[in-house]
Simulated scan of single mutants.
Amino acid sequence: MRPRLALVAGEPAGVGPELCVRLAQQRRDDCRITVFADADTLTAAAAALSLPLRLLHRDAAVERPGDIVLYPFSNAAPARFGEPDPRNARAVIGALLSAAGGCLRGDFDGLVTGPVHKATINAGGIAYTGTTELLATQAGCEVVMMLANDTARVALATTHLPLRSVADAITRDSLIRQLRIMHAALRDDFDIATPTIAVLGLNPHAGEAGHLGREEIDVIVPALDALRAEGLQLIGPLPADTAFLPTKLAGFDAVLAMYHDQGLPVLKYSGFERAVNLTLGLPYPRVAVDHGTALDLAGSGRADPSSLFAAVETCARIAGSRRAR
């Protein structure tokens, strides 16, 4: 059987709903998709794009382009393109938690998520730092954020933190846990028998032998040594300014960056359109688009659906691989 994926449209005022409508125009033989979203928002998105749309009950079968199997999550206020409303924050978070809960129960084999608007969710009275953290808390497990495209896979030792908090958040134990999660995901979900992971330093020039900071000596190297003793193939700590040279990158299966803006700008520059965001360590595969809500494009039909298409393809492949084991 094809894997069953839950797809959350995300912020109703952004491009997520119209990307779901664009996705529904494709025939998919690799998975079955249920969309968690507001029915009126999807209908308005389809009308703005002049695309066919038919909303189906959860037990119905997709028969033609434009069919969407819907798990309805009604907004508290009508959605307007480009104008996020904090009153809809609970519907956005509710859809995420409901879809993820379905994955935890086994109703779905994987989760794909569209872009959300963090400021609007917080303005709606919900403390929210990111979907990665939200899903990890719900599942009660430690996770690793990894972004990937056709050029590279880049994971993060810390995610959505102020820069001044990063050094204190990186510990020997946290790095060991994160690298074990990465190793297992690369082996099991990406079919890499013996993954090679490059680990970046925190400081310029990876600390310059302690002259530019001791985090590499005191924290990162002890973590790498402990895991090398277990048989993991780890390279580093490497200076971040040279680790992404094509000749070096070709020798790595993935890179662990120490903080958000150390690794992700390089990955997005190398292929933003096809990049996806994976949450490693969850009991189910979760893949997200690698872009924001693009409020300025909402309703215009100009939003590029490539990242959502890639996210669905990636999630379906991983979910199918897990089902086959």
Rank of each mutant, 00 (worst) to 15 (best):
T132C: 07
L256N: 11
P3K: 02
H183Y: 12
F252K: 06
T314M: 07
L56M: 10
F73T: 14
G82L: 03
I68C: 03
D150V: 04
L179G: 11
S306K: 08
A288Y: 03
A316F: 01
Q25E: 02
V92C: 12
D191V: 14
R90V: 15
S270T: 13
G106H: 04
G10C: 05
R27H: 10
E83V: 15
Q26A: 14
I93F: 12
V8M: 03
G236D: 12
G210F: 09
I217M: 06
F252P: 04
A48R: 11
R322E: 08
I176E: 14
V199D: 05
R90P: 10
A44K: 14
D109F: 13
A24V: 00
N88H: 08
A316T: 01
P265H: 00
G201W: 01
G292M: 00
L308C: 05
G236Q: 11
D225V: 06
A157I: 15
S165Q: 13
P52F: 08
A123W: 10
Y259N: 00
A240S: 13
G251E: 12
E216G: 02
D38F: 06
E142D: 14
R105Y: 05
R2I: 04
L186K: 13
D241H: 09
T34I: 12
D189G: 02
L7D: 12
L202P: 03
T159E: 10
A155H: 10
E216H: 03
T120A: 05
G101Y: 07
Y284Q: 04
T120C: 06
G201S: 00
A169V: 03
P237N: 09
F244A: 07
H57Q: 14
I181W: 13
L202E: 02
R164C: 10
D261G: 01
T158N: 00
A257L: 12
P12D: 13
V199E: 03
D189P: 02
A226Y: 05
A324G: 07
H183R: 15
S165G: 02
A37L: 09
D107G: 07
L267E: 11
E208P: 14
D218G: 08
A155K: 05
R164Q: 13
A6R: 11
A47W: 00
I93A: 10
A240C: 08
D29I: 03
D85C: 09
K268W: 02
L55I: 05
L111C: 01
